[in-house]
Design a protein around this nucleic acid. Structure first.
Lengths: 204, 204
DNA sequence: TCAGAAATTTGCCTAAAAGGCATCTTTGCA
DNA sequence: TGCAAAGATGCCTTTTAGGCAAATTTCTGA
């Protein structure tokens, strides 16, 4: 095994903390959750929480960070002769095809839960942290694209940004859509649009 | 005049605080600036600073927020019969054609200043706030696009995201590029790429 | 298997930030 | 000109941020 017990435990703690942070925040609202509560929920000391994350928001965003990094890893793992956009779609699909709730993850699309998520993402500090998470993920993704395509400079970063855009737009629409639409569908549609170059829309 | 003295003064205070926050941070680094210092620099009380901004990072990002909102306003002000991408380019151009330093604003592209900016944007909390600022700006921009094109749902948001992507990529490249390139050039190139749909790149 | 090295967790402590509330000033308007 | 609304300020309490060192756990090589 490449990773020892130490590394695995650290990963587990990280996930436990992040998950606890999300759950408590969805239940009570960000302002009513002390990092002390989160630490207690995950079974570590307050000080240890702080060793992992420097804010509640960072803990909450961590789940998205991890997911984003997995997508970038997946992209690197795709066959090198696969067309770029095929590989991109496959990488994203590996994270979103199943757990269609997007944010919710393991949870079923529970009414209460979704409402909590909607409320949660209105928190300014959390918006910032999520945005940062996606930006960081974009950098990773851009590196992967650069390696795969052998390009440098503006292009790989733009591809990453544009893919991130599709994801952001899909999430925004997923949160707003009523009746609800599946994240997989939204993502797919968004990727179609951006990869086609967003021409002037047909009026409707 | 549409705005009275009260409103104007508030705006001035906001700008003074934001500018002071940026300058002090570039000089000393975010960790060595207390909000007390920023308030003093702008000639208001610490408590007043807090009425305007809820964190140092927010104060710093405020300049970008304002700029972004001006761009969205500009887009709304463009003639309705202008093609979408023409209007978009013009709106962005109105903010970036002149002050090519992008971040620096009024400052000449001073070595020390640019180094300070580079250092500043490595601060995690600031990255989050900046990302949030751009996301919020994107929402405004999307609304403007929706009104202009008469579309709803995914499309206007995607346009906004993609334009934001171009801006983000241009800024990232502007910060990294050596020898330096002008922000106007980078933005223009980035917009060309995204509006053309980011096809598979030519290897080079 | 075991002792020492390295990494992690934790408690303790101080500075700073966050933000509620009451009060005092300034600006806007009839 | 005088009142009402909005803003600035001071004060106070809770929470967060993070340095430091002791204690604990995992890893490594002999």
């Amino acid at each position: 095994m490449a990773v020892g017990l130490r590394e695995r435990k650290k990963q587990e703690t990280r996930i436990a903390l992040s998950w606890a942070a999300v759950r408590l925040t969805v239940e009570r609202g960000l302002a009513n959750v002390k990092i002390e509560d989160i630490a207690a929920e995950a079974g570590v000391s307050l000080r240890t929480f702080r060793n992992y994350f420097s804010s509640k928001a960072e803990a909450i965003a961590a789940r998205e960070v991890d997911r984003s990094l997995r997508i970038a890893d997946e992209l690197r793992a795709r066959p090198a002769d696969e067309p770029l956009w095929t590989a991109i779609r496959a990488s994203i699909g590996s994270e979103f095809a199943l757990g269609e709730t997007g944010h919710g993850g393991e949870q079923p699309p529970d009414e209460r839960w979704l409402a909590g998520i909607r409320l949660m993402v209105t928190e300014p500090s959390l918006q910032g942290e999520l945005a940062r998470a996606y930006a960081a993920a974009g950098a990773e993704f851009a590196d992967a694209v650069a390696d795969r395509t052998g390009t440098h400079g503006l292009y790989p970063r733009l591809v990453a940004e544009v893919v991130g855009s599709a994801r952001a737009a899909a999430i925004a629409e997923w949160l707003r859509a009523d009746p609800p639409r599946s994240m997989a569908d939204l993502l797919s549609e968004a990727l179609d649009l951006v990869s086609a170059g967003l021409p002037e829309p047909e009026q409707h």
